[in-house]
Design a protein around this nucleic acid. Structure first.
Lengths: 190, 190
DNA sequence: GTTAAAAGCAAGCGCACGCTTTCATAAAAA
DNA sequence: TTTTTATGAAAGCGTGCGCTTGCTTTTAAC
């Protein structure tokens, strides 16, 4: 990927994050990237093509995969904190806003599956983890899917609200939030 | 509000929910409402004016106010279920999608404060409730803000994921989800 | 039945969009 | 040095946008 193409992608993704896909024009992108508009179309086939390349890049993709959650200690409290922190490290407010900005009829069909991978990776890894914890005799039997969804919602809700409303909504620091919710989950599970 | 204007508003809001504000054209709205395009501009000053009227209408506003959460029994488990169910009754997937669809640079400054009222009403009511529950000696002392945020995130996360991914992400029914998360919260709090 | 208000119809305005073309320039490769 | 490659500058294409106009038709109040 040459430098010019990268500048174009970065500019496009940043604008989409801030204004949304439909509201971001190719002239905007060119100006933000510091290149001429026609250069956009020399490097890419269309506006849509720019974001398709963008979302496939590591820097614009929050690679949340099941492998990420592999480092467990089989100790409920630190493990749940690890799950939530790992997720929150990757799914930054910028990433959330970008995902929302990509919600355009022309794009969503292709991009929705990529975005869905991340919550799915979290929930399925956590469900697996909880099952094994029962097998190890460390926790009792529960509805793991509901439980995992609840813990995921907790991480997702905080992340999303922070992204959408910034400091106007959330006064609790991430550390405090993770610690106190995990403590509650642990008490609820054990 | 005359019938024609109402049809226009309803069509506009439904399209914005499905495609987003920028991607919804005035021709779209007219077609969906079954009126001529020029009628839109006889009834309203501009496209933006239509949605400003829309969000101020009861039918397009999920009136989540503190009063809504007043019917408490001072019994942790049913009360927390009431909080979550009341929220989920109002914040439907349609409403969530509409809120996301309204995320356009021309609109968001005016509309963000309206949307923020709802989570704020939930969290502040719940925080107040938990404080009083401590005064009544029914629960111990906690960081109520974190706790309330966590419970709210739980309701919000489920609602949002259901709206964004439908049945592709969530296999747990709302009833099961609310029951099992509340049980966990209750155990965590008591 | 007359009148006035509400809505349709069709054309089109000015503009900004995504995208293209032509030609000039400059740096790098041969 | 010559040639190739990358980019800029500027004009403009067709299209669809939000919105308007002029006029006709329907609806309904009086």
């Amino acid at each position: 990927m040459d430098e010019t193409s990268q500048k174009i992608i970065d500019a496009a993704m940043a604008l989409i994050r801030d204004k949304g896909y439909s509201a971001t024009t190719t002239k905007d992108i060119a100006r933000e990237a510091g290149v001429n508009e026609c250069t956009l179309f020399r490097k890419f086939q269309s506006k849509k093509d720019i974001v398709v390349h963008g979302v496939s890049q590591e820097r614009w993709r929050a690679d949340v995969t099941p492998e990420l959650f592999a480092k467990v200690q089989w100790e409920l409290e630190p493990d749940l904190e690890m799950f939530m922190n790992t997720y929150m490290d990757r799914i930054t407010p910028d990433f959330v806003n970008m995902s929302v900005g990509l919600r355009a009829p022309q794009l969503y069909k292709e991009i929705l599956p990529l975005i869905m991978k991340m919550p799915k990776a979290f929930v399925s890894s956590l469900t697996e983890y909880l099952k094994k914890m029962e097998e190890l005799g460390k926790i009792g039997h529960h509805d793991y899917e509901s439980l995992a969804m609840s813990i995921f919602s907790s991480a997702f809700g905080y992340t999303f609200l922070k992204a959408a409303f910034e400091e106007r909504m959330i006064y609790v620091s991430r550390e405090d939030y993770v610690r106190s919710s995990v403590q509650m989950f642990v008490k609820g599970i054990l």
